[in-house]
Design a protein around this nucleic acid. Structure first.
Length: 205
DNA sequence: TGCCAGGCCCTCTTTAGGGCCTT
């Protein structure tokens, strides 16, 4: 496995659904996967500069009191920009996390070079018969051990990472692939379901 | 406050609508 296949699996908790409508990040969690093993972690609450709603408090377990003691978003994101520098990125429903990463890093004028792959889009192709492709359902479907609560950033990042590793292993085993390059997961996430098998056959050696 | 947005994907489709996912 090359450095290009070392990935950061990340998850944001936020004040809402859209940075374009003023929503901000309130927590970032991430793990680094290298050679199929989690080798590093990052977790931080961040103060968005305004109160969060009761809904978000209930949804995440993160309270306004917790956030008043947290470092501001800009300070945390400076550290996170260093953590992800040079690595590709994975998230569950990556379009959501990418929007917040782009918005928060844009605020501090920090670019990043990694590309995103989406565990949900890969799962939709690999587990086409699954009743649901939400993170908790896929974790249960694959009998991944759960020790913690969903909707906290580091826990969701850890669960997404374990799901990601399961999917890479299944791709290797089911389709007799020697390696599953990061670029293949990106191609897979954009391939119509009926053409998935054809794509994977082309990667067989 | 939890209704909001945006991308993907399916179908009773493509000159569209709606469910799934993320907080």
């Amino acid at each position: 496995m090359s450095d290009a296949d070392t990935v950061i699996v990340l998850d944001f908790e936020t004040t809402g659904l859209s940075p374009d409508y003023g929503d901000r990040a309130i927590e970032i969690g991430a793990v680094k996967i290298q050679n199929g093993i989690i080798v590093d972690r990052f977790q931080a609450l961040m103060n968005p500069g305004k109160p969060i709603s009761r809904f978000i408090e209930d949804y995440t377990g993160i309270t306004n009191q917790m956030l008043t003691m947290a470092a501001p978003c800009d300070e945390v994101m400076e550290q996170f920009a260093d953590f992800i520098a040079g690595f590709n990125l994975v998230a569950h429903n990556a379009s959501f996390d990418k929007r917040f990463l782009d918005a928060e890093l844009s605020n501090i004028y920090r670019p990043y070079s990694g590309q995103f792959s989406c565990s949900m889009l890969v799962a939709r192709r690999l587990f086409q018969q699954a009743p649901s492709h939400k993170l908790s359902s896929l974790v249960a479907l694959n009998n991944i051990q759960v020790e913690g609560e969903f909707h906290r950033a580091l826990f969701d990042a850890e669960m997404t990472a374990k799901l990601w590793l399961v999917m890479l292993e299944q791709l290797s085993n089911r389709f007799a692939l020697v390696t599953v390059p990061f670029q293949l997961t990106q191609k897979l996430s954009k391939t119509p379901k009926k053409q998935v098998h054809k794509l994977l056959k082309s990667y067989q050696i």
